[in-house]
Computed example of a mutant assay.
Amino acid sequence: MSDPFKYLHDAMEEFSAERDWDQFHSPKNLAMALTVEAAELQECFQWLTEAQSIELDEKQLTAVRDEIADVQLYLVRLAGKLEIDIEAACRAKMEKNAEKYPADQVKGSAKKCTHYQD
């Protein structure tokens, strides 16, 4: 695990241990909590126009920042429970995506990958 993720992993381990929350942090429960936090992030943008979603005021930006942090912290905790190196997983997934979505075939298109190579 890279240094930033290791720091967050260790900090989340300590935070949870101090509160005796590890008993609640099964992969299933963490994945469920993650979806709740992702929904809270979506809520920050609910009813905003495209332009408004780009031009957030400081209060809105603070709320988005907090929700992004919550999502990331749950991801770090879940990855830690499953012994997944987030950085390595992201690099591998980016390689898969590059193969799945060749730039010369998908540039400027939002179509699903089924329209390209399998």
Rank of each mutant, 00 (worst) to 15 (best):
M1A: 10
M1N: 08
S2V: 06
P4A: 01
F5Y: 15
F5V: 07
K6G: 01
K6T: 10
D10I: 05
A11N: 12
A11Y: 13
F15G: 03
S16V: 08
S16Y: 07
A17H: 15
E18I: 09
R19A: 10
W21D: 13
W21F: 15
W21K: 13
Q23E: 12
S26Y: 05
P27C: 05
K28N: 12
K28R: 14
A31E: 06
A31M: 09
A33T: 08
L34K: 01
L34M: 09
V36E: 15
E37A: 07
A38V: 11
A39E: 07
A39R: 07
E40H: 01
L41S: 07
L41R: 02
Q42T: 07
Q42E: 01
F45K: 06
L48G: 01
E50V: 14
A51D: 09
Q52D: 06
L56A: 08
D57C: 10
D57V: 10
D57K: 04
Q60W: 06
Q60S: 04
A63L: 06
A63W: 03
V64N: 05
V64R: 06
R65F: 12
R65M: 12
D66F: 03
A69S: 06
D70Q: 05
D70A: 04
Q72D: 06
Q72G: 01
Y74E: 02
L75T: 00
V76Q: 06
R77H: 06
R77M: 13
L78A: 02
L78M: 09
A79G: 00
I84P: 00
D85T: 03
A89Q: 01
C90V: 11
R91Y: 15
A92V: 03
M94A: 14
K96M: 08
A98M: 08
K100D: 04
Y101W: 14
P102S: 04
A103H: 13
A103M: 09
A103W: 11
Q105R: 10
V106G: 02
V106Y: 02
V106A: 03
G108W: 03
S109I: 05
K111A: 12
C113M: 12
C113W: 15
C113T: 10
H115F: 13
H115A: 12
H115V: 08
Q117L: 13
